[in-house]
Amino acid sequence: MKSLNLSPLKKLEIILEGVHKEFATDLLDRAGLKGYTIVGNLSGKGSHGMYEGHVMFNEDDALIMIIAAVSEELVAPILEGFAPFFEQHTGVVFVSDIQVSRLVKFKS
């Protein structure tokens, strides 16, 4: 078994209302990310109360989470970019340290 080459990256988990999905993905595209994952139909509790999990009549009312792996120097700009948004809307961003094996998939 070849030894794995793991490279450190930062993981961003962005939780926000589904109706703003396009804005968030657009922002990440502009930051230069090659890809991200979107998890839908979340439920939870926030300052605005409980969110139900199941899809109502459209996807807009549910919460989603966008997971992206970014290099360290992109974290600050992305957080800066989301700051004005989260001042007016519910949601959070979690930053954590991760390691990935195929760095080429994440860095352009």
Partner: peptide, 15 residues
């Protein structure tokens, strides 16, 4: 102007 500035402006316009 940094990338962060540009993204920030983008988010501000959206809000």
């Amino acid at each position: 102007l940094t990338l962060g500035d540009r993204l920030k402006v983008h988010a501000m316009v959206y809000v």
